[in-house]
Nucleic acid binder design. Structure first.
Length: 211
DNA sequence: GACCAGGTCCTTG
DNA sequence: CAAGGACATGGT
């Protein structure tokens, strides 16, 4: 008989926190996090940073400016992130949602997390992970991000729950403190990039988590 | 050249 | 609901 998924996840969280400690991760203002969250879909972060620089040169790093930008200008700036046509469309759709539903990014801050999340998920091209990244890292909310890396790590430890059940599983365990949400997601990504390849997981410091 | 990257949407069986 | 393909550039 193995331990429950809840205990496994708790061990992973604690183990990684002990391994990495506090790390700086995904700084930037709210608009920039929103943009980065879309650009990083299925894309390395280094390429996203280059695109963010190009957007800065064009003055397109706010929802306000993206709302009125020409599609061609957005595409040219973000080409290096791949999927550039669909991502340009997604950025514009997000900007339109922000400006037309709230008027500005600052107006969004007074709304509850659930309301903001429902709105974001209605934007075509924003799924659960992107919405939670925006909420957790852009709006400082306690909404945990489940990504491919997190799923890979918990599978490795024998957690069987479906992906949609992982978010509530983590949120039951984490203290309701924004800092833990940010840090834990950061740890998952750093750890997986270092040790969990897509096909195999070597030198895994979590190998004894089932015991 | 093959394979992968911090997803999401759409279509099929 | 699960599985497969499309979207596209850049690095190993």
């Amino acid at each position: 008989m193995s331990v429950s998924s809840s205990v496994k996840v708790r061990r992973i969280i604690l183990s990684l926190a002990g391994h990495y400690g506090e790390i700086a991760w995904w700084p930037g203002d709210t608009d920039e996090v929103m943009i980065g969250a879309i650009l990083t879909q299925q894309t390395r972060w280094e390429n996203v940073e280059r695109a963010l620089l190009q957007l800065q040169w064009k003055g397109l790093t706010s929802m306000h400016s993206l709302h009125s930008a020409k599609k061609q200008d957005i595409e040219d700036a973000i080409r290096c992130t791949g999927f550039f046509r669909i991502k340009a469309q997604r950025l514009h759709s997000l900007a339109t949602h922000v400006m037309e539903s709230y008027g500005s990014v600052d107006e969004m801050r007074q709304f509850p997390t659930g309301t903001l999340r429902d709105g974001l998920l209605r934007v075509k091209g924003i799924g659960e992970e992107t919405a939670d990244c925006i909420l957790c890292f852009g709006f400082q909310r306690t909404s945990f991000v489940i990504d491919a890396y997190t799923e890979r790590i918990v599978r490795c430890a024998g957690v069987q729950e479906k992906r949609t059940e992982l978010k509530p599983l983590f949120e039951q365990i984490l203290p309701v403190d924004q800092k833990f949400y940010r840090q834990t997601h950061a740890h998952m990504v750093e750890y997986a990039k270092e040790y969990c390849g897509k096909k195999r997981c070597s030198e895994c410091i979590l190998v004894n988590l089932n015991g």
